[in-house]
Structure formats: structure tokens, C-alpha cells
């Protein structure tokens, strides 16, 4: 898990509930994801660069620091690639795991803070509760939902996208079948 206040990530062994490793990363790590035998950590407060730390999931060693853009927050594995939300740029970025560079970015005008990979789409939670459905093959936002709240969590199950609204004390049930793909 990402320890935002300690600029570190902790690894827990679920077999004995012990922290087996604590690894220093960049400033303000918020989210992390697993993919390509690595842990990818978004460093939200990292200087001027705003970057992602790549950690070897076997050796726990830091392998790369990748400049991605402003305000990297959520980071997920989608379509075999690592995608990171750039809250400061209103974009999502795909990281090339082969050379540790940003391979492409997609504009998300309504903002991208939290991400979910589901129903062959990348879903971004942005400003003021706006949810964007992104078709990464097309490289564009294909549909949006405007809840008007402050949404934070997003998950998929029972053929629905579930989104929590922190401020209004609500949870929205979004049917992806009723949205453009």
C-alpha cells in the first residue's frame, strides 16, 4: 500500500499479516498498481516532474522513475498496459513497460483522478463527480456521466459501475450498457 505521509509503500505478507518491506518512493504516493511483474506507484507531490516509481515486485528494488505529467493519482492495469490518471493535466497516460516512457496520452476534459478498468473501457472519475468512459483503442472519451457530487471510489460488479459520492453521501449505480462504447 501507498503511505502518503511517509513517501513510502509497504508490502504485507497476507500469510502472516506482517509488513515484509517498506520502500521509499517519491513524494506523496497515493495509488499503486501491479503489472508487468512490477509495482507502479504514482507520486502525486513529486517536485516538478510528477512521476511514477517502478518497483520490481520480486526484488523490491526501484527500477525506474518515469516522468508522466502533473498530478499523477490513480494507476491501473488496463488492456495489458499501465495507465495513470494525470489530475493536473486532465489526461490519462499509458506507460510503455518496455522502455519506461509515456507511450500515449488521452485528453479527459472532465478530469481524471480515480481510474477503473472494466467492460473493455477505462473509467475516470474527475472534477465535480464527472465520470468519463474512455475507449483506449480509439484514444478518446466516448461518454460521460455527471453526478454533480464529489466522487471518489469506483468499482465494477453485477454488470454495473458503482461510484461513491463522498460529499453527498450517495452511491451511484451506472449501467455501462446505456453508454456509448
Amino acid at each position: 500500500m501507498a503511505n502518503t505521509g511517509d513517501n513510502s509503500v509497504s508490502r504485507i505478507n497476507p500469510a502472516n499479516n506482517q509488513v515484509t518491506e517498506t520502500i521509499k518512493v517519491g513524494a506523496g504516493p497515493v495509488f499503486l498498481a501491479y503489472g508487468a511483474d512490477s509495482i507502479w506507484v504514482s507520486n502525486y507531490n513529486e517536485g516538478n516532474g510528477k512521476n511514477v516509481t517502478r518497483i520490481n515486485a520480486v526484488s523490491n528494488s526501484k527500477e525506474a522513475t518515469i516522468q508522466v505529467g502533473n498530478g499523477p493519482s490513480a494507476i491501473v492495469l488496463h488492456g495489458g498496459s499501465i495507465w495513470v490518471a494525470l489530475e493536473g493535466d486532465d489526461k490519462v497516460a499509458r506507460i510503455n513497460a518496455t522502455d519506461n516512457t509515456v507511450a500515449e496520452t488521452i485528453d479527459v476534459p472532465l478530469g481524471a483522478y480515480q481510474l477503473l478498468s472494466a467492460v473493455d473501457s477505462l473509467w475516470a472519475v474527475g472534477y465535480m463527480g464527472k465520470i468519463s468512459r474512455i475507449n483506449t483503442d480509439k484514444g478518446e472519451v466516448v461518454d460521460t456521466v455527471d453526478t454533480g457530487g464529489r466522487c471518489e471510489g469506483i468499482a465494477y460488479g453485477e454488470n454495473l459501475i458503482w461510484v461513491t459520492d463522498l460529499t453527498n453521501g450517495l452511491m451511484y449505480l451506472i449501467n455501462p450498457a446505456k453508454m456509448a462504447e
Partner: peptide, 10 residues
């Protein structure tokens, strides 16, 4: 017990 202000997990 972990470090300060834990948030995201994977």
C-alpha cells in the same frame, strides 16, 4: 501497523 497516511493498495 504501517506508515503514515496509508491510502491506495494493490
Amino acid at each position: 501497523e504501517v506508515e503514515t497516511k496509508p491510502w491506495g493498495m494493490t
